[in-house]
Write a protein that binds this DNA or RNA. Structure first.
Lengths: 212, 212
DNA sequence: GAAAAACGGTGATTAAAATCACCGAAAATT
DNA sequence: AATTTTCGGTGATTTTAATCACCGTTTTTC
């Protein structure tokens, strides 16, 4: 298992300085999560930086009883949003939930601070992940403000299809609804409408997208 | 004028290494903007990192003809969102507009990259600003998703009042509406309602908030 | 000082989405 | 096999906000 994890790290961070690589191996803690499990819960205090070695985690925001999807962290990416809270010891403002079985490498905050200054490559990785997360969040925000649920549902399904490489979406209306911050009935009605428009087919337990 | 700007830089970046400070003085370009002027326009390609020396700029997102306020950049803060686009030469996904007369220090991207690696203090500044912008954006997103316009208007006014240190808001309903991504009539109706509830008083050309 | 532009008020209507209520079918649990 | 849970469908209603239409006033511009 250890050996596998080494492989993951090499794959995720191909350009690390040798010394940094050694340090990561030394202090990094591996954690495995089943599908649909909390990696980070909103309100918690973190003392580590999670890096997704394999699998996918989804970032959720919660407020006023509503939970909605912000964006995904794929393998090889750091869950940088939590970085925000590593330094000022504030509770995290979001939750991270695995989408599938996922292996996470946890790097202690003290080391992260040290490496950020010591290793240029590490600083660049952090910055790059910050950028991506920022862009993803902005994209999501724009979508929410500027488009109705129907458009957002279509985007959501297309996005899922693209990232899974399959035209089939195995999710209940309820789960979709909660990702989009709406209610099940709304999803049911829209999918029905989309089926009439030949954009998808509703099967017993999944949705099949139709290439346009 | 040059001397004044030196003072601004010292005030904004109190902990710079001397050498970095010299470099900034050498290559930084000062730009002055009147109130309500574009500093950055969505879709443009940037080759500099803007730092607000004095004044305030507002970050807007645009999509599908709708423009709405994301958050503010105060004096001493870098407009880090643009940083995103410095590295990958993508057009910026937002606009930055001055709120009041504003002095901006423009740092060339080539130097920014260099300093980020060379000077730990610079890396920390960048990271810190990234954090703040990220948190601000997340806050805004949550507000938009989870609260109705009435609550958001109240927050918006309170926020303005707090940052200006005054209970008087000198903004037209139209301007408020466009910041919140809605229409004037909606603002007019809500302010009228809030007046009935003794939360504010509408004067001829401004709104007076009432301490609760 | 006249014309134009910006400002704010308000009623009526429309549209989008949330909520409520209730249904039967399928799947999972015991 | 019986029970419970999850799932999805659908009509009716309500809520929220957007839009349309029109008004008089104030401010700015020329």
């Amino acid at each position: 298992m250890e050996i596998e994890n080494h492989t993951y790290i090499k794959r995720c961070f191909p350009l690390l300085e040798k010394q940094l690589y050694e340090e990561i191996l030394e202090v990094g803690v591996y954690k495995e999560f089943a599908a649909s499990t909390y990696v980070v819960k909103q309100g918690a205090y973190l003392d580590f930086l999670p890096v997704v070695l394999s699998g996918v985690i989804k970032m959720y925001a919660e407020e006023d009883g509503v939970q909605f999807l912000l964006y995904y962290i794929n393998s090889g990416e750091t869950c940088i949003l939590s970085f925000n809270h590593l330094f000022d010891q504030k509770p995290v403002q979001f939750s991270a939930i695995t989408e599938e079985p996922t292996i996470v490498l946890c790097l202690p905050v003290s080391k992260v601070k040290e490496w950020f200054i010591k290793y240029p490559s590490f600083g660049r990785i952090i910055l790059k992940d910050f950028q991506r997360n920022f862009e993803d969040l902005l994209r999501t925000t724009k979508d929410i403000v500027c488009f109705g649920i129907e458009d957002r549902l279509i985007k959501y399904l297309e996005d899922l299809s693209e990232r899974s490489g399959s035209m089939e979406i195995h999710l209940s209306h309820q789960k979709i609804a909660s990702d989009l911050g709406t209610s099940r009935e709304v999803i049911s009605r829209i999918t029905k409408k989309l089926q009439k428009e030949n954009l998808l087919i509703q099967h017993k337990r999944h949705i099949e997208l139709i290439r346009n």
